[in-house]
Every structure is written in C-alpha cells, then in structure tokens.
Amino acid sequence: MTLLAPKTAEPVEQAAPPKRSTLARRLVPYGYLSPTLILIVVLMVVPIVMVISYSFRDNVIVQDNSVFAGLANYTKVLTDPDFLAALKNTAVFITVSMAAHLVLGLTFAMMLNTQLLSGVTKAVFRIVYILPWLFTIAVVAVIWRMLLDPSGVVNYVLHTLGLINEGVNWLGDPGKALWAVTFINIWSGYPFFMISLLAGLQGIPNDLYEAAAVDGTNWFQRFLHVTLPQLRPVIISMAVLDLIWTSQQFALIWMTTGGGPLNTTEMLSTYTYKQAFSEYEFATASAAAVLVLLITMVLAFFYVRSQRER
C-alpha cells in the first residue's frame, strides 16, 4: 500500500509593485540637489558670467549704452603701474605669510605633540596659541592699529628696551607698512596651520619612530625622514589653501592701511575695490577681478590635484 504525499499548496503569486520609470529614478537625486544648485547658479555662476561680460565692454553700469571694448580693459589693467605694484605686493604678502605660517604652525604643533610637557601645560599652551584665530579680522585690524601706533604699546616696549629712540609709524612708513601688515596676517593665521599639522602629527604611528630609533637615528634624522614625509600631504594641502585665502585678503589691508601709504600695501583685492567703488571704473575692475579669478583657479587646480594624489 503506497502512501500518497499530501499536496502542498502552490504559492500565490503576488503582483509586483509597479516599478518607477528609469527617468524618474534618475531625476530623484537631482531633486534633492536642486536647492543647492539653484543657489550656486544664482549667487556664483551668474555673477561670474556678468563680471566676465563686463570686462569686455566699456561704460558698464554707469551708463545705459555700453560698448564692446574687446581686450582693451585687460590691456589697461596689465599696463597700469598701480596694478603691477599690487601684483608684486600680493606676491610678497602671500609668499612670506605662507612660509611663516608653515614654520610657526609646525613648530608649535611639535611642541604640543611632545611627551616632555604635561597634559595641563599642553592645554594652557593650546588656548594661548589658538587665541589669534578666535578674533575676527576686524578685531585683529583694530587691535594691531592701536598696538602699532607711534604712541602704542609696541613702540613703548621697544623704546623701554632701548631698541628705538622715538615712536615708529609702522603702518604709515612706506618702508615698513607692507612688512607690518604681513606680520599681522602671520599672527592671525598660524593657528590654523598649527591645528592641522598637530592632527597630522598625532596620526603618525609610533612604530615608525621606534624603528628609526633602533636604526640609530637622532631626532633631526627622524624629523627629516619620518615626520616630514608623513606630513607631506597635509603640508601641501595647507600651503595651497593658504595661498588662495591670503591672495584674497581684503579686510585686513583695508582696515589697517587702505592700500597705502603710496600704494606700498596695495593688493589685488584693494586695487579691484578702488577701481569699482572709488574710481567707478567697473569695466576695469571687472577685468582685474577676472585676472584674480584666473590666478585663484590655477592655485585651486594644484590643490585639487594634490588631493587626488593623496
């Protein structure tokens, strides 16, 4: 007698939910991005396009009927002695600032990363070193204008130490003004380098230092062959970013010297501002702004390239 196996109920096929069309699924991410894209287009792309168009025309904004001028505005800017002086001052300003930021930031970062100091001492030093970065650039400008005044604290200290005989007008002397504003920019900007390099130092494995010590290397050799190669990506990224930010510095220069005296502290940013809102030469200012944009794009290209290599 054979036993018949009970019949199993066949599964009921459920209707598959309707699939979204391929086009709709592809448009969903752009729907989420659309508010940001609209803001970028309205606040960045459109103004850039307008400025570029202004640079090829004459009598823009101030007159209704502007005329096409071709490259005349660029020729005028590139042959302007004030623009060439601003370009030279900007090159000195950003180069010295970036080098000093790197040296000071790395020095203080290594000091805070050492094992020779206690935790409390490191915490106190971190607060002291990061203070310049907490002030807004307007506060920094006002403070240093008071400190560097001929009757200010800096001259008083130097006179007390016997280093000067009379008060020096640091921001009003054509031979000292550029170096004075560069020093202020260095003082206010090195904490960002210090924090970034400190994070990089804390990410270096101790095994590398122990292996180098076993090989008989001294502290300088370990710094040269272990620390610097490990910090190379951070140093390159920070250097390029600092060049971009410093080249666009405006508020500090405008609130301390205004580009003077005798254009010795004139920067590309202050030159462009004066052309637009002091001389009302908006076409010339647009051409100068486009040149600054090109310089910034070159620096940004190297920054993106370093990030991809990293």
Rank of each mutant, 00 (worst) to 15 (best):
Q230C: 14
L117P: 07
V154A: 06
G167V: 12
L197A: 05
S53P: 01
Q307F: 04
V28R: 06
V234T: 15
L78G: 04
T2Y: 15
I184H: 08
A15Q: 10
T95N: 07
A123M: 07
L117N: 11
T227Q: 04
M267R: 09
Y303N: 01
V60H: 00
M110T: 08
T272F: 02
A276Y: 03
P17Y: 09
I38L: 14
A9T: 00
V153N: 03
Y273H: 01
A109I: 10
M238T: 06
N218W: 04
M238E: 04
L291C: 04
T160C: 00
L116R: 13
I186T: 07
V46Q: 15
D149G: 09
R57Y: 05
G105I: 09
I235L: 12
D242E: 13
L43I: 13
N185D: 12
G203M: 08
T272C: 04
A287N: 09
F83D: 04
I164S: 07
G70M: 10
A177N: 06
T182H: 05
V240K: 02
F192S: 14
V292H: 09
R232D: 04
A69P: 13
R308D: 04
I143W: 11
T265I: 15
W187K: 08
V298S: 10
T265F: 14
T257S: 12
V234A: 14
P174W: 12
R57G: 05
V28Q: 05
P81S: 04
G31I: 02
N263P: 00
L112M: 09
F135Y: 02
V51C: 14
P174F: 10
T217G: 00
F183I: 05
M267K: 02
P132S: 01
G167A: 09
P35C: 10
L231H: 12
L87K: 02
T107E: 12
P205K: 03
V153R: 06
L4T: 00
A276S: 03
S97D: 04
P132G: 01
E10M: 00
A100G: 07
F192N: 09
L178G: 03
N73D: 09
A16K: 13
A289M: 00
P35K: 11
G70H: 12
S21D: 14
L3D: 05
D58W: 14
R57Q: 10
A123S: 12
T107N: 11
L299H: 01
T256Q: 11
I253G: 02
M44W: 15
N263R: 10
W245S: 06
Y280R: 03
G216Q: 09
E266H: 01
H225N: 06
P6G: 00
E266Y: 01
G260F: 13
T95I: 05
F183W: 08
T95R: 06
L131H: 03
Y156K: 07
L291N: 02
V139H: 00
K176T: 08
E281M: 01
E13W: 11
Q221Y: 12
L268Y: 09
Q14K: 12
Y271T: 06
N59T: 12
L178T: 08
V62N: 11
G167L: 08
V168Q: 07
T284S: 15
